[in-house]
Nucleic acid binder design. Structure first.
Lengths: 109, 109
DNA sequence: TAGTACGTTCGATCTCTATCGAACGTACTA
DNA sequence: TAGTACGTTCGATAGAGATCGAACGTACTA
């Protein structure tokens, strides 16, 4: 776990990149989970959400979210703890993450 | 211009699809233009925004936006008039389009 | 010292998307 | 009746992203 991935500072967030990071059903599930449960480690997210994907695919999605600035990760022991950068997001794009989190998820809800 | 593209009704909007439609810098420019100027015809959007793309590429982006439900198009004479489905969007995903439209566009703004 | 759990990285594959030029159909205009 | 403006559709191409299994490195545990 080398993990020298550069998470951007809030003032360098790119709108299109953030939207692209959120524009995936699996990643929306991930983001909603950490938004609701607070900081969580990866395998817990996979288990609790019931996301059916391999660890490598999860890691890829996590990478997309971190590169956009949507989530951050810290490391403790063998676990990686993921949390939403709600404050940074709301500072840079006021109301955006709140609207996404409170939006109806499924079509014809 | 056969144009039998099915634009979804508001209650069938899909969040991931809408976010994906907005997750492109060119399409963000298009959406912001029609949001600011109201109903506009295609070639006017291309000219005023200074978007450097072919007509076919513009047509492709317009298609993505329409399929997601972000914009609608009506036809009059030889021109296609595009407008934002602000009401439908806000009804289904309250605050989302407003947050996107008011967001800082460029990084390090 | 293994052994186990955790998560990343590495190929490989497949699909989707962005892009263009060319050709087309539609409607107005001279 | 051409001619022109408008926008779509059709290949074709190139790039990005989603997905997986396998291999790896790290930290705790027995």
């Amino acid at each position: 776990m080398i993990d020298d991935l550069a998470e951007p500072p809030a003032d360098e967030f790119d709108l299109a990149r953030v939207l692209a990071a959120l524009a995936d059903p699996h990643r929306l599930v991930m983001v909603r989970y950490v938004a609701a449960h607070g900081e969580s480690w990866c395998s817990r997210v996979i288990q609790d959400t019931g996301l059916e994907m391999s660890k490598s695919t999860f890691s890829h999605h996590l990478r997309m979210l971190r590169l956009a600035g949507v989530v951050t990760k810290r490391h403790e022991g063998t676990k990686g703890y993921v949390s939403l950068r709600a404050g940074d997001l709301d500072h840079r794009f006021p109301g955006l993450i709140g609207a996404v989190l409170s939006a109806e998820f499924e079509p014809a809800a």
